[in-house]
Amino acid sequence: MSLALSLFTIVCVSLGAVFFLAGTLGLLRFPDTLTRLHALTKADNLGLGLVVLGLLPQVDWPLGALKLIAVWLLALLAGATVGQVLGSAVRPPPVSGAGESTP
């Protein structure tokens, strides 16, 4: 049983590391800011999510596990917000009401 859980951890954490690697490659190689942001947030969402999923069997239940999940959710919130803020800084959203002033 513990062997199966260890294998589960190794597989999940390794997959998470692959996503981090891919996200870093995307950050370095993609052509513009928006696609780079896309690569970066994928690393946060899936990479960190898989690492947390893999570590869940290794920590105390329920407090340790809840802390890990909270870390992942906070990283998701921060990543999504930073993505939106940086994205709108690069490409500002169309000003509402602009159509009225210029018919």
Partner: peptide, 14 residues
């Protein structure tokens, strides 16, 4: 932006 306002509503309680 709306995303920043949402963050400022969700994060402070935590």
């Amino acid at each position: 932006g709306a995303a920043l306002v949402l963050l400022a509503q969700l994060l402070p309680p935590v």
